[in-house]
Design a protein around this nucleic acid. Sequence first.
DNA 1: ACGGGTTGGTTCGTTCATCGAACCAAGGAA
DNA 2: TTCCTTGGTTCGATGAACGAACCAACCCGT
Lengths: 183, 183
Amino acid sequence: MALGKDYATQDCSIAGALEVVGERWTLLLVRDAFYGVRRYNDFLVHLGIPRAVLATRLQTLTAHGILEKRRYQQSPPREEYVLTEAGLALWPVVRSLGLWGRQHVTLSQRRIMRHAVCGTDQELGPYGECPACGIVVPVGDVVMLPGPGLDPNPDNPVSRALLAPRRLLEPLITEPATAGDRV
Amino acid sequence: MALGKDYATQDCSIAGALEVVGERWTLLLVRDAFYGVRRYNDFLVHLGIPRAVLATRLQTLTAHGILEKRRYQQSPPREEYVLTEAGLALWPVVRSLGLWGRQHVTLSQRRIMRHAVCGTDQELGPYGECPACGIVVPVGDVVMLPGPGLDPNPDNPVSRALLAPRRLLEPLITEPATAGDRV
DNA sequence: ACGGGTTGGTTCGTTCATCGAACCAAGGAA
DNA sequence: TTCCTTGGTTCGATGAACGAACCAACCCGT
């Protein structure tokens, strides 16, 4: 990991996990992948991350088998990054972190997660369980809705596309980019 | 957060959480606090963290209300750091991260977590639930046992003290330190 | 009273990741 | 032929992490 010293001596699976997903920006990339973001430029616009850092993070996440890079169009060649099974298994981490942040840091509800299948209006618990059904909801069956704390007028097309209710993992379709969206 | 740019623009509770616990070493400090580590020198010995970094992390965790610093002895004055309620609420994050790390990174079981009260030999799920009782176990009712992947001969007294089965949060009592333990 | 040990730090020079702006290249589209 | 889009790489400046040394308050044994 960063800065010459790794967590290898920790003899602990938490340290091992942080070796892989503990670097700056990494978990936000994973979060965006759950939201349906797949393309280099969409990550760039949505996160405001430096280009070089984005490139290396996508590389290491791919190398660790959390994202898979694939060409979704031959001409012109275009790449996308999607969550693998190991990446999908990070959902409880992302969900519990978000809920903790809302309850102890931001104190405002930005996004609401619900079980799409049963139609309840209760939101998921800290590990992604539906309080109505009592089951742990598969990630693809989660709907994400804007919460009251979410900025209704974001300045970038990715955030705008994420305002509408949508299933997690559903590929994000952005408006045609304009020059102003390049960072 | 670190490096001049914060996550403030992210408009997301996950980003807010990472502002607070996303820096290098921070979640390992929190993990150790769950294990019962409370003292500056024990964190230092167990983590092998630079002293200056440890001091600033303890400060920011205290400032954010995740740890509480208190004097447990007047003469000579001695301090300890214990988890607050907000800190305890991080348990699902720590637990799910550890389980993910074991299943997708380290691939070996270092520590086993069980429900102490019901006496089951099944271990807790990703958010700290007991598969036997079906309830989410209060952190103080979790026993931690060494797993097969754990180094049986660690080189520092804190790791040695953590070899024995113990309740989470139970204050760690280390052997009297020797000069060699100073880093 | 003095030296040595324990605890909980601070200081400081070196190393290295992040930042941000500029540049680049392959391939359409006008 | 020139511009635009996508997905990057390069590079200098900034600032955090590292690690070794130093420091201060307090205790104990002699």
